[in-house]
């Protein structure tokens, strides 16, 4: 089990992390989700040993590894821009971690070659071993980086924005592939992302971070349906934020949780209607205010026309005290 205890980190005057606590169970697939500057990458690098905390501990199976270097921690790290060694072939890249071992721990040349080829088969790059990284596509490079990290048989796999530099189609394929790989190998993995869709799709548990703090830890279902803070509600998925009539609370309503009713609802002036995948997206303004409302309507229903007035009612909403946490995101 990986335990992060009360981790604090500053970069000069910039506080990157304040008192982070997190437990990661064996075999779990964890997403660190947050906007840039939330501290998610710093946390990942501290777990890896590429960065060192000012206070707090990192424990691997109950053992304090805070003072150990990245090489001694036995973690596999996949960099956002792959960081492949460009003067080495794909096979040489994958074999690097085995080749730099001390002689007594180093497998024979033949064993290294066999395991590198096995890993290339695992990441579906058989036959590309003799190429150089410059001759591969982005998705292929990412898989080489993964094979290289797996070669040292890490106890923990850490991935920094693993799909960040890829285009949308490749990203989706690779995402599915990585999830299958994780299921098959059962290796404890943590990845950093700013893309909520990625986090919800891949992770067993999502850690939502903002301003160097953990806002919520939970399953994708919990994060989406039961956001603990206004920030989580706003950052994960789409949310309409409406001031409640008492003035001290804010209602957070997902666009698909709004119903259009005949009477008894709040009147909304429809500004724009467009097809958004399987639903109608209606953009409107709450009558008598400049509050913008987004509504998703099942596509089998007739969509209202722009300029029309409709009545709405929230089917489900979440109430937060305004200025909870000091700030409204």
């Amino acid at each position: 089990m990986i335990r992060v205890q009360n981790i604090t980190k500053r970069f000069g005057n910039f506080p990157a992390l304040h008192g982070i606590d997190l437990d990661i169970q064996p075999g779990e697939f964890i997403a660190l989700l947050g906007p840039s500057g939330s501290g998610k990458t710093t946390l990942l690098r501290i777990i890896a040993g590429l960065e060192f905390q000012d206070a707090g501990q990192v424990l691997f199976n109950g053992e304090d590894v805070s003072e150990r270097s990245v090489g001694e921690r036995g973690v596999g790290f996949v960099f956002q821009h792959y960081a492949l060694f460009r003067h080495m072939t794909v096979v040489e890249n994958v074999a690097f971690g085995l080749n730099v071992r001390k002689r007594k721990d180093r497998p024979t040349k033949a064993e290294i070659k066999t395991s590198a080829e096995e890993l290339l088969r695992l990441v579906q790059l058989e036959g590309l071993g003799k190429r150089f990284p410059g001759q591969l596509s982005g998705g292929q490079r990412q898989r080489v980086a993964l094979a290289r990290a797996l070669a040292i048989e890490p106890k923990l796999l850490l991935l920094d924005e693993p799909f960040g530099a890829l285009d949308a189609k490749v990203r989706k394929d690779l995402r599915r592939w990585l999830r299958d790989l994780h299921k098959r190998m059962g290796l404890t993995s943590v990845f950093v992302t700013h893309d909520q869709e990625e986090a919800l799709e891949l992770a067993d548990r999502v850690v939502v971070m903002d301003h160097g703090r953990i806002e919520q830890v939970g399953t994708p279902e919990q994060i989406y349906m039961e956001p603990a803070t206004p920030f989580v509600s706003y950052f994960v998925g789409e949310t309409n934020r409406l001031p409640a009539s008492n003035g001290t609370e804010t209602l957070h309503i997902r666009p698909h949780d709004i119903e259009i009713v005949e009477t008894d609802g709040k009147p909304v002036l429809v500004d724009n209607v467009f097809r958004k995948g399987g639903v109608w997206r209606i953009e409107g303004t709450l009558a008598g205010s400049d509050q913008i409302i987004e509504i998703d309507l099942p596509a089998d229903r007739a969509a209202p026309e722009p300029g029309q007035s409709v009545h709405i009612r929230p089917a489900r909403s979440k109430i937060f005290t305004t200025n909870a946490n000091g700030v409204q995101p």
Binding site: V70, G71, F79, V100, I152
Partner: peptide
């Protein structure tokens, strides 16, 4: 320093 960090994370020492 990505490349160097990658090497170190794979267990290479400073000289390697």
């Amino acid at each position: 320093k990505d490349d160097e960090e990658a090497a170190v994370s794979l267990g290479a020492n400073g000289w390697q």
